[in-house]
Design a binder for these strands. Structure first.
Lengths: 346, 346
DNA sequence: TGATTTTAGGATATCGATTGTATAGTTATT
DNA sequence: AATAACTATACAATCGATATCCTAAAATCA
């Protein structure tokens, strides 16, 4: 077992003081060229690397970001994570990651644990569902007060003054719905996960705005809330039984795909009899039959943006800095589940 | 901006020495009950948490694991990662994650960076493809020599003496092929990614063994290697054009699903005319039409197992410890792409 | 040649903890 | 009453670095 070499070891070996070694390696003018050369060579030969822990302790800065993500099995979050990792790495930061499993408690505990020392220089996070429902944001506020910068993405806390990266959910849903309307759909259903909170709520608003604008009737029974993926089948099948539907906007991939399957079983042709658009452009959409038209949220870009914002905030270190919210524009990725139509100006 | 409270602050405030505070908080017998109580109360009130960095420096142990994963967008790796995070968290470890993007260079750089100080106590990793192809394992060996434990999973380096968690790839492929044979397939194709290295190679061996055992002819043109997902369509379509096929074993989800689509376009019924089995039980398999029968690798369990092994190794701290390889048994998850048959004893 | 400035490097404090040793003050022993 | 033993706490070294302040010796100047 080879032991890590330290400044002290070099100092002893070359019979100089520790401070001389440190200065030499940092190319200080106080040290003669000759000595510097000797020390640097020895250091290189023995593969000296300064101890990060000691450095962090000294500098009160760890060059590490804390990442809190509700669930890594979700493709969208995996995309965001990839974006975060990429930028963090490029800019010389490490990342400590925690999966909250949508638990409020784990979120609080983890932030507590990490914010602790100078373990991390800042947080990038997407709130857990539980936190969103409880509307308990004290742990965020505590960290901000402690001077630890936070950037939230996607599921962000309203009323908490931090940098945020979100998607134009309302607009995305609006344009998607409009796209359905333009391809002649008159009876458009909206399948959503909890519509009470931020994202779901905004998407619903976008859906409604498009309908109103097109003077289409709004039918609350055409709006179904789904929660547990296990119940998708049943809930969506019921919708088809009760209603005549020729268009669907769904707030996630899986419910969109479930809807397509059910419709196909009923003998409907997609997109001839039914057009479907989903949200979050994941793998399922790309490989379903037919391939699903989706509103892409550009997860990777969100991650990259959030990371740049956080590192900028850390390195600026300006406590009076006003918080910023960046909106990443969604894009409608047209595939096979909607009719091709002449490009609409938008 | 509230400032972090330190031992020193408490000491000053209560007019005692720093060591008294430290010992009191660690419940040392050297300190009187009265003083302990006073100090503990003050600490609790002011939410004192010892600085992790200082502790790590002192203990030469960071309670942090370094995780190297080729690609987080791959569902299998995301599963493993979830397993790792879960166990690490439960056992009080943090994780620093790096995505290697299958690059040898990034793998080496990251390990270098992290192994550096006492930044991390050990590594969990799956080799990058490039490393596997180059067969350059010096960076692993260096770390082992430095006394930093490593656990490899899935893509492991042969000839490197570390703990490993793998899947019974050969056997998994063997049983899958046998399952196809038992459901009356006579012309079974094998679609694989690079079959030269570890995993692909083993799966091919399993496939061949099953054929031999059933006295079925081995036809090299029924074995196709695919590389880039973009070419899946073309390569697999060619296979169908050239050959009569009634069964397919594919080493990943996507090629299996692509094969199903092509077959369906040709008018074949699944599983009546064609049975298909894929590897790695991801989301695609669960939501394709028909749902894909797959060999599940139990990613989450692999992650959990690897993490337990690593932490055990760290905490045992026994350098003479002989390395262990654990094999996670694959399971055949029967869905709609294969015929139901009477359970075969295995 | 003696005083002053450079030059090159050493000594020390610090970051925030732990831990072993030293030392007051009090109680017990003879 | 003098000394031993014990109690409670302070002091100091350490982990591995950086940064400020000092100090010998050499070089320059008058």
């Amino acid at each position: 077992m080879k032991k890590k070499i330290t400044l002290k070891d070099i100092a002893n070996e070359l019979s100089v003081s520790i401070s001389t070694v440190s200065k030499a390696l940092n190319d200080s003018f106080e040290i003669s060229e000759e000595t510097k050369k000797k020390i640097k060579e020895y250091a290189k030969q023995h593969n000296f690397k300064p101890n990060t822990l000691a450095l962090s302790l000294q500098n009160q800065r760890s060059k590490t970001l804390g990442i809190l993500i509700p669930n890594m099995l979700n493709h969208f979050f995996a995309q965001v994570f990839s974006g975060i990792e990429k930028v963090a790495n490029n800019r010389g930061y490490k990342i400590i990651t925690c999966i909250t499993n949508d638990s409020y408690e784990k979120e609080v505990e983890t932030m507590d644990l990490l914010a602790n020392g100078s373990d991390i220089d800042g947080f990038i996070l997407s709130m857990s569902k539980e936190t969103e429902i409880k509307e308990q944001f004290q742990h965020f506020k505590d960290n901000i007060e402690d001077g630890i910068p936070i950037v939230m993405f996607d599921r962000v806390a309203e009323g908490v003054d931090v940098d945020k990266v979100i998607v134009n959910d309302e607009e995305g849903a609006y344009f998607a719905t409009k796209h359905l309307i333009n391809s002649n759909c008159k009876h458009i259903a909206f399948i959503t996960t909890v519509a009470k909170y931020s994202i779901g709520k905004l998407r619903k608003e976008g859906y409604l705005r498009a309908l109103k604008e097109a003077l289409l009737p709004i039918d609350e029974t055409m709006i179904v809330e789904v929660e547990d993926p296990k119940e998708y089948d049943e809930v969506i099948a019921q919708l088809f039984n009760k209603k005549k539907i020729d268009g669907i906007l769904a707030t996630n991939e899986l419910s969109a795909i479930t809807a397509m399957k059910i419709a196909q079983k009923k003998g409907m042709k997609i997109p001839k009899d039914l057009s479907v658009i989903g949200f979050s452009n994941g793998i399922l959409s790309r490989h379903s039959t037919p391939k699903l038209t989706t509103v892409s949220q550009h997860g990777e870009l969100m991650g990259e943006t959030a990371t740049h914002m956080l590192i900028d905030a850390i390195e600026k270190n300006n406590p009076a800095y006003a918080s910023v919210t960046k909106v990443i524009k969604t894009t409608l990725v047209e595939r096979e589940s909607t009719k091709q139509l002449v490009k609409v100006k938008r």
